[in-house]
Amino acid sequence: MIKPTANFANVQTANSSKEFLVIENVTKAYPKPNGDETVVLDDINLTIGENEYISIIGHSGCGKSTLLKIVSGLERATSGSIWLDGREIRKPGAERMMVFQHYSLLPWLTVRENIRLAVDEVLDHLTPADKRRVVDEHIAMVNLNAASEKYPDELSGGMKQRVGIARALAIRPKMLLMDEPFGALDALTRGRLQRQVLDIWENQRQAVMMVTHDVDEALYMSDRIIMMTNGPHAKIGEILEVPFSHPRNLKELRELPIYYELRNHALNFLDRNFSQDE
């Protein structure tokens, strides 16, 4: 486990490539009706590099989504602090853009208008022509040209999530937060969209934090896998380094013995935690 040792208030942008996002002693507790509190996350410490793709994996209810929400600012930690690029995070911000599990597209806007809404809000210094160019680029990036004037109700789940990803990338966030982005998709669509997201990420690297419960997805896409113990009092149980270089090819990965070693290791970790709970 990686323990932060530096004095984070003084972290400079110059040396932040390894310490881009710093999660320091974060604890999240909810008050119970009887006056006690349920501790969901217990003393989480984690550091993420500027171009690093990390996955957080764990059983349902282990607080992995809560951790992501705290990083996004949508929820506040009970104690501890989070630093992005040397600045403390206290509220939601567009430099940490979310890709939501259930897409969260606005159903009264078309694909183009959904992306444009985000661009209007965040890149408000651009001219209308530049904004239109940004929107068009990102519609093309996720291959949605033909559907750009459609409403979300008219799209399949995979297409909706592509809009969600295009919307997130269009506002050029410093960091991408993905909450089980492929969780609601069927296996075939999921595979295709994973490939597409990985392609985009391999072309323009940035910090990504992805919550998932799929070991294969985590191994395929990320550089490190953060495995969490079961809640309540969830902690980081183990951090798994994924040694594969990018660009990755799922077929080639599956032929490596180490892929299965890592996969079994992760699954064993999850099993061990599951039986503890029983």
Binding site: L74, P92, A94, M98, L106, A118
Partner: peptide, 20 residues
């Protein structure tokens, strides 16, 4: 979910009323 989108985009409250 819609409000969360607006919050992540740092949309001011009054604009959330009209746009969301």
């Amino acid at each position: 979910d819609y409000i969360d989108v607006a919050r992540v985009l740092e949309m001011p409250r009054w604009r959330q009323v009209f746009k969301i």
